[in-house]
């Protein structure tokens, strides 16, 4: 007697349940992460205001330096990115749409992405070329600011934690890191499994 795939799958998967112990562990885990809620219920606004101030201080400190991430690695990436950016080597392919030039980068083991964090900045794509970052083959995309001639370089390379260790991951709620090298600001983040590094992000750039 044959059964529709979804029914057979559901019957099988329904047998996959967390054990009572596992369920209790996960429920306890959630409970442990909400002590602030319980304190606020008991102590009212004082705790709420104090917590907000503490968060503001921590956030402020995190914006001043890449606390919690690999500072040495961030500095190395920034130095390499800025060197390449300042050289302004000729583009190997020109185009205003990433979709149009993506096929050129067929030697990469990833596809260059449209970063959601660049969507609101207002950058015009000019083209791209191959390069490397920390000895890993990367895509180097060049942009021009809308309304000015300022050039920006965006590096994209497959994010391998073994090479790049822990860097802020937008998909996990982290914010990008910005550092300066030779007077050039470099903003670094991981998104959709790709490590991105942008030179000269504007001051109102998200995460700053």
């Amino acid at each position: 007697m044959k059964t529709p795939l979804n029914e057979a799958l559901r019957a099988h998967v329904d047998s996959q349940q967390l054990s009572k112990i596992q369920l209790q562990e996960l429920l306890d885990l959630q409970q442990r992460h909400h002590p602030a809620d319980r304190r606020m219920m008991h102590h009212g606004w004082f705790v709420a205001v104090a917590s907000s101030l503490l968060i503001a201080v921590v956030v402020g400190l995190m914006q001043m330096s890449p606390v919690g991430f690999q500072q040495d690695l961030v500095a190395e990436i920034a130095a390499e990115v800025v060197d390449n950016h300042l050289h302004m080597n000729p583009l190997e392919i020109e185009g205003n749409e990433l979709a149009g030039i993506r096929a050129y980068f067929d030697r990469l083991d990833f596809q260059p992405i449209e970063s959601r964090y660049l969507a609101d900045i207002g950058l015009d794509l000019l083209g791209g070329r191959y390069c490397s970052l920390q000895s890993v083959t990367a895509a180097q995309l060049r942009f021009k600011s809308l309304g000015s001639d300022k050039l920006h370089t965006l590096y994209q390379v497959g994010y391998d934690p073994a090479v790049f260790k822990t860097l802020p991951n937008l998909d996990e709620g982290d914010q990008p890191i910005s550092v300066f090298n030779k007077g050039v600001k470099v903003t670094i983040w991981v998104e959709k499994g790709i490590l991105l590094a942008l030179t000269g992000a504007p001051a109102n750039y998200s995460g700053e």
Partner: peptide, 15 residues
């Protein structure tokens, strides 16, 4: 998925 018919016990091997 309803259009694909299998023997119920096959699902383990398929997965």
């Amino acid at each position: 998925p309803e259009d694909v018919l299998i023997e119920s016990e096959q699902i383990v091997d398929i997965l």
